[in-house]
Simulated scan of single mutants.
Amino acid sequence: MFTGIIECTTKVYKFNFYKKNLYITFINPFSYEIKINQSICHNGICFTIIHVNEKTYSVIASEETLFRTNLNFLKIKDEINLERGLMMGERLNGHIVQGHVDTTAKILKIENRNGSWLFFFKSKKKLTTKVVEKGSIAINGISLTIITCNQYTFSVSIIPYTYKKTNISFLKVGDIVNVEFDILGKYISKYIINYNDMFILK
């Protein structure tokens, strides 16, 4: 489990396909603080470490992960947001993030608001029951608050700290990002749909 509060960024060192899986190696910013089998959120994707040394570490992306995320656009030296798993007893400063990407979204517009930035996105999936204004959403693993939303588009505001601390400052119009909807909203949405189906059947 994660909170969407990015610890640092790293760069893609190398990657290669083996059958339908993608093996990715990143530069290690944590030295020996991480270990094999540990989970780290990369741009909103929860990966398990399979190899680690002082300079690099490696993970595997399955076919399902490649289908759900923006990994097909990955390039060497890409800047990646990182967050290690939440430790028990810590404050939940963002929102509950699982690291299970729901869909991707394209950046439609970026507005400089003289001290902050407004990012506008178009989701690959319909958003009707997934997002609400002032609700939480994770973009490339970053916990953000939704400003506006409709069936397919939504916007978020980025403060200077987030802009400098994460890879969002490297993004441009047309780029594809990973999106994870609020898990609480997804459970409530599913409950309501199932309840309505039961009521109709009766």
Rank of each mutant, 00 (worst) to 15 (best):
M1K: 01
F2Q: 01
F2T: 00
I6W: 01
I6R: 00
E7D: 14
T9Y: 03
T10W: 11
Y13S: 11
N16M: 10
Y18A: 06
Y23H: 14
Y23A: 01
Y23S: 04
I24S: 10
I24Q: 07
T25P: 08
F26K: 02
F26P: 02
I27P: 01
N28H: 13
N28D: 15
P29R: 03
S31Q: 09
E33N: 08
I34K: 02
K35V: 03
Q38N: 15
Q38Y: 11
S39T: 10
C41P: 01
C41H: 05
H42G: 05
H42F: 14
H42T: 07
G44N: 09
G44Y: 10
G44L: 11
C46H: 05
F47E: 07
T48S: 13
I50H: 02
V52A: 12
V52I: 12
E54V: 04
K55C: 07
K55S: 15
Y57A: 07
Y57F: 15
V59Y: 13
V59G: 11
I60E: 10
A61L: 15
E63P: 08
T65N: 06
L66G: 02
L66S: 01
F67A: 14
F67T: 13
R68P: 02
T69I: 04
N70H: 11
N70L: 10
L71Q: 07
N72A: 05
F73Y: 12
K75M: 06
K77M: 09
K77H: 13
D78K: 08
D78I: 07
N81P: 05
N81W: 11
N81E: 10
L82C: 08
L82T: 11
R84E: 12
M87L: 13
M88E: 06
M88G: 00
G89S: 04
R91P: 00
H95V: 00
I96A: 01
Q98N: 11
H100R: 08
H100G: 13
V101R: 08
T104P: 14
I107Q: 04
L108Q: 14
E111T: 14
G115N: 11
S116A: 04
L118E: 14
F120M: 08
F121Y: 08
K124F: 06
T128P: 01
T129G: 02
K130V: 00
V131M: 15
V132F: 02
G135F: 03
G135N: 06
S136C: 12
I137V: 09
A138R: 03
A138Q: 03
A138F: 03
I142K: 02
S143T: 00
L144T: 02
T145N: 10
C149A: 14
N150S: 14
N150Y: 06
T153K: 12
T153S: 13
S155G: 04
S155C: 06
V156K: 03
V156S: 04
I159W: 10
I159S: 07
P160N: 13
Y161V: 01
T162A: 05
Y163H: 09
K164T: 04
K164P: 00
N167P: 12
I168E: 03
I168A: 03
S169P: 03
F170T: 14
D175L: 05
D175Q: 07
I176A: 14
V177S: 07
V177Y: 05
N178A: 10
F181T: 08
D182R: 09
K186Q: 15
S189A: 15
K190T: 09
I192K: 11
I193W: 04
Y195D: 06
N196F: 10
N196Y: 06
M198L: 11
M198F: 12
F199S: 13
I200M: 11
L201E: 12
K202T: 05
K202G: 05
